[in-house]
Amino acid sequence: MRNRPRIEWLIAGLFGLTAACGLLLLVVYILGGQTQVEGLLLGVALAAIGLGVVLWAQELMDTPIVVEERHPATSSAEEAAEFQAALTEEAGFTRRRLLVGMLVAAFAGLGAALAIPALSLGPAPGREQFTTSWRKGSRLVLGDGMPIHAGDLPIDSVVTVFPDGVPGSADSQTLLIRVPPDLLRLDPARAAWAPEGYVAYSKICTHAGCPVGLFRATDRVLICPCHQSTFDVLRGAAPIFGPAGRPLPQLPIRLLEDGTFVADGDFSEPVGPSFWNLTSGDGG
């Protein structure tokens, strides 16, 4: 045991600092608390006792280097033989192979049976992945439920819309974008889907499902913030950069006389990230 009075005083001082900070913490707490002060006081208190304890070990304790032999982990031949005997003698497993086999099968069957409650954790996907809440005649409304009118949107601008009745619906979230009509280069089969330069696409990225919230007005592209998938609005939201493998599904819309929009059906294809039976259409 070493005697080093100066170090002893230092360590005692450190422990005292811990005690003081602890009490101060209590005072700060009673006075209402403040995160930065609390963190600092707690940090100092812990650091002081930590330093003290380590210094004690390093400076005041005699902890010499010691050497010891390692023993191999393997059991001795005797012990191993005893183990083997204890395991198999009275059970006679080796003589009743059929029973052992059937026992294993029984446990496997039980295991399958016990999985039943786990299966209740989730419904089967069904047709949900293939449809949204958009129907023919669904009016386009904003998040507050009010219908959007043509003219509400400046050119080269974008707004998020939903089917009337379910504003905020997660799988039906749609982007309504207004572009100069003469710049649109849609598939001829979808020429009627974008009246007067107003075009609607699903807002759910086809890569990993994030809302495609960024719109670059200068080149009329939509960008998903999660992994930078970039979609060309003028060309049917075709992916032009990034990891998305298919375009954003397009919603067919019609402009009514009163200036509001309605959908002409559900999206052109299932929305959101692609999945294995996307095109084969089975309910799964």
Binding site: E38, L40, L46, V54, M61
Partner: peptide, 20 residues
């Protein structure tokens, strides 16, 4: 003692981070 000290010092660093 060294391990105990390490615990307190680790906690101290995390406490300062957590507060500041």
């Amino acid at each position: 003692f060294r391990s105990l000290g390490l615990f307190f010092l680790t906690a101290a660093i995390l406490a300062v981070l957590g507060g500041l």
